[in-house]
């Protein structure tokens, strides 16, 4: 079961500019992390996605982008799973 998720995470991390990704279940527990991504942020990522979805309850799940000077974190919930992708901003 994890093999499939592992393969997906490998694919994501190998995309240009991406340096890490985390996947989280509906309880905020980490399903997997690759690259320079911390498993400790799993709960917060799920919380951010959940809170953002409350802004527009009748729309589909929003994509949340957190931007710093040189990095971007993109968070989206799909069903019970929330994914976060960390990217370098220059690319």
């Amino acid at each position: 079961m994890e093999k499939h998720l592992d393969r997906v995470m490998d694919e994501v991390v190998n995309k240009p500019g991406v340096f890490g990704c985390v996947f989280v279940n509906h309880q905020g527990l980490c399903l997997g992390a690759k690259g320079k991504a911390s498993t400790e942020s799993a709960g917060l990522i799920a919380a951010i996605a959940e809170q953002a979805a409350k802004l527009e309850p009748h729309s589909s799940a929003p994509i949340v982008t957190l931007e710093t000077d040189n990095k971007t974190c993109i968070i989206q919930r799909a069903g019970t799973i929330t994914g976060a992708i960390y990217k370098n901003r220059s690319s």
């Binding site: 309880q27 709960g43 919380a47």
Partner: peptide, 13 residues
């Protein structure tokens, strides 16, 4: 039971 378990664990620090 539906509370974000991971969020609570992150509070630890």
């Amino acid at each position: 039971d539906s509370c974000n378990t991971g969020h609570i664990l992150a509070i630890q620090k």
